[in-house]
């Protein structure tokens, strides 16, 4: 592991990774008001995880972010997205019509729906990108 000797890379990335995650969360939840959204946030979050894996090695990465967890995450995000649609369907509106999610104010219902749906997209994208990285990088380590 030649990477262990690259102390500057290790220290700098350790300092940067929390801020990458913070930035991803900002993109995720500020996407309604500025540029950004679930997809961008998911990719930035995954980029932070992948940076960790590239610097510290796949085995360390597996300890921090279990592969199994990521696999469940892909499904969880999609189910969250579809679940919002089902809930609005049960509440008597069309599939993915968020107006009914808040009984008093349809606008708040829309905001809640978009927040949940974007969260679903974000989870799926983070986990999908991390899983693809695991698959591609894990192929080479055997």
């Amino acid at each position: 592991m030649r990477m262990r000797e690259k102390i500057i890379l290790r220290v700098v990335s350790k300092a940067f990774i929390p801020f990458i995650f913070l930035f991803a969360l900002y993109i995720q939840f500020h996407g309604d008001f500025g540029p950004g959204g679930g997809f961008q946030a998911g990719v930035v979050f995954a980029a932070g995880i992948i940076l960790y894996g590239v610097i510290f090695g796949l085995d360390t990465m597996r300890l921090a972010v279990p592969e199994r967890l990521m696999e469940y995450g892909i499904v969880l995000g999609l189910i969250l997205y579809g679940g919002v649609g089902i809930v609005s369907l049960i509440s008597g509106a069309n599939f993915l019509d968020y107006d009914v999610l808040n009984a008093h104010d349809p606008t708040h219902g829309q905001h809640l729906g978009i927040l949940l749906v974007e969260l679903g997209v974000g989870i799926t994208v983070t986990c999908a990108m991390t899983t693809i990285f695991y698959a591609l990088a894990g192929r080479g380590e055997k």
Binding site: G37, F39, V125, A128, I132, A135, L136
Partner: peptide, 16 residues
């Protein structure tokens, strides 16, 4: 936006 998402997915599949 949708096209970029589909693009990265197909790229990953092609690389695999």
């Amino acid at each position: 936006l949708t096209a970029i998402v589909v693009g990265i997915s197909t790229t990953a599949l092609a690389l695999a």
